[in-house]
Design a protein around this nucleic acid. Structure first.
Lengths: 210, 210
DNA sequence: TAGATTGTTAATCGATTAACAATC
DNA sequence: TAGATTGTTAATCGATTAACAATC
């Protein structure tokens, strides 16, 4: 295990490793070589060994990697077993889509509660998740700390809510708004999901070809 | 203008350029130097000039870039003025969230129709978008060709629907399912929006720090 | 044991940054 | 004009690939 800083490129590949290893595991595959895994993922064997070597020595010469144990190592590396807890801010269409359809627990994250300001939804329960009024955010978080805030509020409300979340101890913001957040707090991590950027990249790619 | 293949790194930055230029434009800013733009975007001036030079010469020595015209150039490069048309497959929570809240037109994409198999939603109109039965997909597309298919169906339905879309002439798949699509067609582009990968990357990043 | 495959070091490739002549 | 800033070439940095001794 080397203690260099892990590059973003590697970090972005980790979830894919997990996904593929999980598929292999569920398909009953016991062991896999970097060569075979690379082939199925479209990466070189070299890159896979290089990537994994950032975190430890998980393979065995002449054998390869044990699927179950590598999967478990990767899930540890990703923090899936740290009991991260999330709260959703904004139970509109997108917030509800995430609450009702996205399996937070499959990423090892506990979805604890949702917040909104719309009286018609506050007090309800969506797929077992209680919707509180946004006014209660600080009070709730002081009793039930969360590490992740999921921002599905309108863009205009995002900066203020982000500040409040960070003030209440949230360490990561999963930002679905089209706003570029400028909250500065030590150790704070913002992960943007910019739909428009993604669609524009697609638009570029289908526009280029003949 | 050089005719080398543009790297993914550059392509991923283009939508950000557009976003920032659009903000500047709407704020009434007339011109900007690579230096100033870089500062506001967290990039080096050098990188911005290098990136833009992939597509042409848009600046002027001693002056910088005209915000309005650069914004317009970037929107052209991104294919925003090609009249790309999209259809949404699956009008569940996420599909509806996109239909009702995501501004396709701001990316220069016309959202033309949605398809589902649920009798309770087929025939309805969501924010002006008609929902057809999935059986009518081919018929609809033969009359109204579309270049982009937005996949918000359950993962299990994704491969089949993807095949059908491609068969009906769609060139880009905006894939929101957790399935890794293997549709192979010449020139087909798949843009994945993997929520789980994004959340896991966030989980990694908040788990690493002290 | 012999074959397979690792982890790591070295070589290559590509992307970012720096430097600067050209010029508005 | 003089100062500012471009587009591009060269230098640097980092990430990917190749090679190979170590060893299961």
């Amino acid at each position: 295990m080397r203690k260099q800083k892990v590059s973003t490129a590697v970090i972005r590949r980790l979830p894919r490793y997990y996904r593929h290893l999980n598929d292999l595991y569920r398909a009953g595959v016991e062991r896999i070589s970097s060569n075979a895994l690379g082939k199925s993922m479209g990466l070189t064997a070299s890159q896979i060994r290089q990537d994994l070597s950032c975190f430890g020595e998980f393979g065995q010469q002449g054998y390869g990697y044990n699927v179950e144990s590598l999967r478990s190592e990767v899930s540890d590396i990703l923090g899936m077993n740290r009991g991260h807890t999330a709260v959703v801010l904004g139970a509109g269409n997108l917030g509800r889509a995430l609450i009702e359809n996205f399996h937070f627990e499959r990423s090892g994250v506990i979805l604890a509660a949702a917040f909104d300001i719309d009286r018609s939804i506050v007090g309800r329960e969506l797929s077992g998740v209680q919707v509180y009024h946004a006014d209660q955010l600080e009070e709730y978080l002081s009793l039930h700390p969360a590490s992740i805030g999921v921002l599905t509020v309108p863009g205009s409300a995002a900066p203020r809510i982000a500040e409040r979340l960070v003030g209440a101890g949230v360490r990561g913001l999963w930002n679905f708004t089209n706003i570029e957040l400028n909250v500065k707090a030590p150790g704070l991590v913002v992960e943007d999901v910019h739909f428009a950027d993604s669609l524009l990249a697609l638009s570029y790619m289908i526009s280029e070809e003949p």
